[in-house]
């Protein structure tokens, strides 16, 4: 488990007046799951780029335990599922793309094969494994990108709108994936506008105009329109005896209409 420490980091693109991000001071403990949201253009994706080592801070410092970000991180430290999966799916066929990182970094050939097979199976891509990536739909491409990061086995996962373009079953698979990697005590950073992640996140982080602030779950829910939170709040107020049932939607349904 590794702790991410960001000290007064600033990211500036080109000769603009306002930095895209920062100054930023944050500590994220190993194994934490952080839900990141905020308005468009607020710096969420720049934050992901900073952690992935794609952009360097123009001032300040990012470290990963004792290692300096971008310079000393091992290539398998951070896995970044980008907002647009076609930016990272680069091989010709699905199984080749999933195999790129383990081909270089798995300790042995059998381990390489195992990582690829496990990731393809988990993301339900076996049927598509031989397909040219250029023929995939948006959602299939997204699942391929997730499988490739899974095969990379990073310590820190950054997912930028991972639920986008996925259908109901794709989203259920994604939720299983997150449960699985959290079970392995990996750090998970989820960037999204979707309130579904409130339920699994340990802490919530809000980005606006390049600045970050920690936010309570309830505040975050009201900012992004978390429907269940708003619903539950009203039900608690208007029908207090139903409060205990708000934990279990199925049970609540049975009680309301036996």
């Amino acid at each position: 488990m590794v702790t991410i420490k960001i000290e007064h980091a600033v990211v500036q693109y080109g000769r603009t007046n306002r930095p895209a991000l920062g100054p930023l001071d944050l500590t994220i403990q190993g194994g934490e799951c952080i839900f990141i949201s905020g308005p468009n253009g607020g710096g969420k994706t720049t934050f992901a780029r900073l952690l992935a080592g794609i952009v360097k801070p123009s001032s300040g410092h990012v470290s990963f335990d004792t290692l300096d970000a971008g310079n000393e991180w091992t290539p398998t430290a951070v896995g970044w599922v980008q907002q647009e999966p076609e930016h990272q799916v680069v091989a010709e066929r699905v199984e080749d793309d999933v195999g790129i990182t383990p081909q270089w970094y798995a300790p042995s050939y059998p381990e390489y094969v195992k990582r690829v097979e496990d990731a393809l199976r988990f993301m339900q891509l076996e049927r598509l494994r031989g397909r040219a990536v250029t023929t995939l739909s948006g959602g299939e491409l997204h699942r391929t990108a997730l499988a490739a990061i899974m095969a990379q086995q990073p310590q820190v996962w950054i997912m930028d709108e991972p639920e986008a373009m996925l259908d109901g079953f794709g989203r259920a698979t994604l939720e299983r994936l997150i449960t699985h990697i959290r079970g392995e005590a990996k750090t998970v950073l989820l960037i999204s506008h979707d309130p579904r992640w409130l339920d699994i996140a340990d802490r919530c982080l809000w980005f606006a105009e390049g600045q970050a602030q920690w936010m309570a779950h309830e505040t975050m829910a009201s900012q992004i329109g978390g429907s269940w939170y708003q619903f539950a709040e009203q039900v608690r107020r208007q029908a207090p005896p139903l409060s205990p049932l708000l934990e279990n939607a199925l049970e609540l349904g049975r009680v309301l209409w036996p």
Partner: peptide, 21 residues
Amino acid sequence: HSLPPSSPLESLWRTLCERGA
């Protein structure tokens, strides 16, 4: 077609609809 439900509220509604509420 919308399965599985993606939020507790959607699950609740599916349950209510199934039970004919």
